[in-house]
Design a binder for these strands. Sequence first.
DNA 1: GACTATACGGAATTCTGATTCCGTTTGCAG
DNA 2: CTGCAAACGGAATCAGAATTCCGTATAGTC
Lengths: 200, 200
Amino acid sequence: MTAVTETERGLRADARRNRRAVVAAAKKLFADQGLDAQIPDVAKTAKVGVGTVYRHFPTKDDLIAALAAERFERLAERAREELEAEDPWQGLCDFIRYSAQIQADDRGLCDVMGSRPEVMETAAESVGLDTLCEQLVRRAQRSGDLRKDIEWEEIPMIACALGGITKAHGPGAGRWPRLVEIVLDGLHAPGGSRLPKPSG
Amino acid sequence: MTAVTETERGLRADARRNRRAVVAAAKKLFADQGLDAQIPDVAKTAKVGVGTVYRHFPTKDDLIAALAAERFERLAERAREELEAEDPWQGLCDFIRYSAQIQADDRGLCDVMGSRPEVMETAAESVGLDTLCEQLVRRAQRSGDLRKDIEWEEIPMIACALGGITKAHGPGAGRWPRLVEIVLDGLHAPGGSRLPKPSG
DNA sequence: GACTATACGGAATTCTGATTCCGTTTGCAG
DNA sequence: CTGCAAACGGAATCAGAATTCCGTATAGTC
């Protein structure tokens, strides 16, 4: 179990152990504090020196990208599962709900989605998320439940926007699942309003 | 025209002129680059020394808060207008569209809405935006067009989330007005799905 | 057990951007 | 005109984080 991954192959045993500790610490800190969690804190949490963090991830952005890649793999995995769902519309909804949920659980991911388009696009592309979204959309439209005037590019946008909602403070905190359902209602056929043309 | 505002009263003529130049420069730079536009750049754009910027706004946050306050005044103004609209539902929709639009035009405002809850809440409170949202919601619900299971607190959340959409990059750029309409459809009565309970 | 390539820790350095300071200039009251 | 409080400009300073460096420690091999 916990198979030795590609990048771990050939590392000395202690290096492998430390790398995992760093990743675990970074996951926790970025999830809690967002992308401006500090590397020295990651090191401290991992019970490791800063140098060790930098040996495995030459820059903070590399670390961020590595964590993002992992999240996106899970997301793509989920998309594939939902493509198998008996009800195509529910499959799409659950995919969108899931993308909101993982952001609610991870402020760092929200930050990536909201203000690091490059990181996000790289990660999304490498796992083929775009194609998966396209298929989810097509399938849900064929079944008649998803309004026809939606284009697949709008699904990732919605997913990103939902990240912003999940970090709401003040009187709105805790209401984000309601907003997700509102958006899903807006996506359900028949669309109430003619959508404006893209671009602008 | 351009009446002397409260805070300008009693300033020397050159100080008044400079303050206005600083505000104008800051507006432009923050709108273009978001909140991490730099103070020295603001000074340069305003053709003024950094010291002058700091004399009027002791910290960068003070400057940000001042600009935010102005935007929120306009927003509140707009809310008041829409409370007079013949069609309460259209009034609410236009208010939401407007809040998306001003964010699309100003990255700094998006940043405030998305990651500066304190600034936003202060600004919103001082212009009474919460009450205005409450009234817009009540009116639209009485007219039967806004679904009954929405609570007013959800309007500001939606407004914030739309800010995130407007800065979409990649294949989604330029599509934000479409997403606004989708959300509005989701808000229109009758709501398709039972919304989950708040909190969580 | 000894040897050496790998790794390690963490103080020191570097970078970036906000903020301070102070000698000089200028509006305006008398 | 003068006098001087109010403003100015912008080099210098500070602060917060990322990143480098190097002397020390240790897995893994013979």
